[in-house]
Design a protein around this nucleic acid. Sequence first.
DNA 1: TATGAATGAGTTTTCATTCAT
DNA 2: TATGAATGAAAACTCATTCAT
Lengths: 187, 187, 187, 187
Amino acid sequence: MSKKKDIMDATLALIHEEGLQSVTFSKLFKRAGVGSGTIYNYFANKEELVNAVYKDARMLMGEYLLRDFDPQASLYERFKRLQLNRLNFGIDFPMEFLFIDSYSFSPYISSELRNMDDARNSGEVILSLIVEGQKQGIIKEMDSHLCHQLIHGIISSILKGLYIEKYPMNETQVQQVLEASWKAILV
Amino acid sequence: MSKKKDIMDATLALIHEEGLQSVTFSKLFKRAGVGSGTIYNYFANKEELVNAVYKDARMLMGEYLLRDFDPQASLYERFKRLQLNRLNFGIDFPMEFLFIDSYSFSPYISSELRNMDDARNSGEVILSLIVEGQKQGIIKEMDSHLCHQLIHGIISSILKGLYIEKYPMNETQVQQVLEASWKAILV
Amino acid sequence: MSKKKDIMDATLALIHEEGLQSVTFSKLFKRAGVGSGTIYNYFANKEELVNAVYKDARMLMGEYLLRDFDPQASLYERFKRLQLNRLNFGIDFPMEFLFIDSYSFSPYISSELRNMDDARNSGEVILSLIVEGQKQGIIKEMDSHLCHQLIHGIISSILKGLYIEKYPMNETQVQQVLEASWKAILV
Amino acid sequence: MSKKKDIMDATLALIHEEGLQSVTFSKLFKRAGVGSGTIYNYFANKEELVNAVYKDARMLMGEYLLRDFDPQASLYERFKRLQLNRLNFGIDFPMEFLFIDSYSFSPYISSELRNMDDARNSGEVILSLIVEGQKQGIIKEMDSHLCHQLIHGIISSILKGLYIEKYPMNETQVQQVLEASWKAILV
DNA sequence: TATGAATGAGTTTTCATTCAT
DNA sequence: TATGAATGAAAACTCATTCAT
């Protein structure tokens, strides 16, 4: 099991450092510290390996997005929790976040995987929250997917700026981002 | 010059269709309708070709972003113009937009190019507009780069949802997006 | 190890038959009976391969030159032994001899390798012998390197004539050549 | 005519600097300062060009070898003249000398050219001189081609040592070399 | 399971040669 | 004659995958 983990970790790190297109098996073997044949005990081929790494990242993110999510909390509290979780996921797991963000639409990732439900179906949770807010007249009427994409996009973009150290990110900035994304969709 | 253009067009189209990692030279030659050696009259290698395509796309976008931009217009009008131009660029040039968005942070693109100033320095224009708005007490006080990233990210994200046909995009939606991005950064 | 040897043997043979400039990898693979990628497990590129072959040839020659060399023998005996060994090396290993002779000054061979000491430093042995003979008043006073080059050149030249069958080479001729090279440098 | 000369000069210089196997047409065109198609007005292909350069070098050498050769002079004088001319040719025309020496047996050079008579048939002159010396009992009895090869080889070898600056070469050394080659073949 | 030498299909790259101007 | 962009066959090289140990 350890070898499998080593291989997957090395894969993610190399994709992060050099991009999927320049991850070769020989780099991978050296990085993971395994023999070149070992991978085939775990993965039928390179595509399967990359998809497995992708799936793990998606599962981890799905788990993370609903941490400390309290369905009983106020709409605003729930919204902030979801947005904060997404932001924190990106901060804590930059490699996973960027891999998902960059390659979700790559032909390398199978479409079933791309469209998979997250661990606890966080996608649905967010959409319902949006619809609920619109019913209450708090959130502006618009296509719920558009709205979802909008608030999701803010977090993604902010994270990418953060990764290249365009700006600092401490409690102040975090609150500014959360508020901005909330205000963006209010009526 | 025509052959060079053919090669660059084919490159962009193939990257769009199959992703950078699966763009091979033989696909490229067939698509561009040139002989296999021709590319080396213009580009020393694949990386140089891709970087040239990237540079052209960036120049085109830089040009586009300041179309019909009236420095005398109101802050809100100028803001909307910039956001609308970005959105329209993405709608009119999906291949260019996605290429820039996907590969700007890829190690394949040289860092000089990634950090290049746009044609008419649209980046500076947006930043000044933000600072101006903050001085006037209209735009919320925050790191101007953070603010820039935020409104930029909304457009990018919306475009990516549009490309996979998550939602329609007509005049109504366009206005919703522009308003959302404006509200996001108001005090 | 065997594959590496096969590749190096095939390289030497091909260089001998067709010259360095017409040794292509596909000829090499067929000749060596290995797959086309195998060479890259041992040599990073063609230049490295050729240099390795050169180094081996030089080591073999260095070994050969001091065969049966008796430091206690008379000056003349030692001289004849060295010259005979060089001649016999060229007769027994024509490919190695010609490769060394032809490419030692080619830009293809790295200068470190060109200037490498032979296995048992036969170069030094010959130079000391010359100096010793000069001290004893037997060998004519002249630059010892010039003297070395002179007697070396006689053997090389004779071998090249032999290879194209310009003349026979049996015991009589061998003795004539050894004597000629000895007389050339006497006072 | 000037373009043709430019091309041939550039060819010889490049062969000297980098070896025949790395002389490409594009290097050649840049060096000669002509367009890439121009060569085909003068030479059908690369091989013909190289052979033309070889032929010119051989003609030049043939001419040079018999300079100031006086058929009436003493055997020793005639011998020294021939050897001195060869040595001086190598000193004055190192590129030509090395090209001839290195590539005479390359498959690139046509065999007719390789076996061509020198301008004034210097080969025959030397052979007759040897035979004459042997008849007079001055030069040792041996195969005349072997003898020729022997004295020729001394000069070649000395020149190659000179090119890599193994030793100086002024009047003293020149005389030493001529004497050595004479003594080598005396009875 | 784990290994890594060997493989060869596929990809990149070179470069002599052609040809329209 | 002179040019140099275009060519494509051939050469160099890569790298995922196999397989004997």
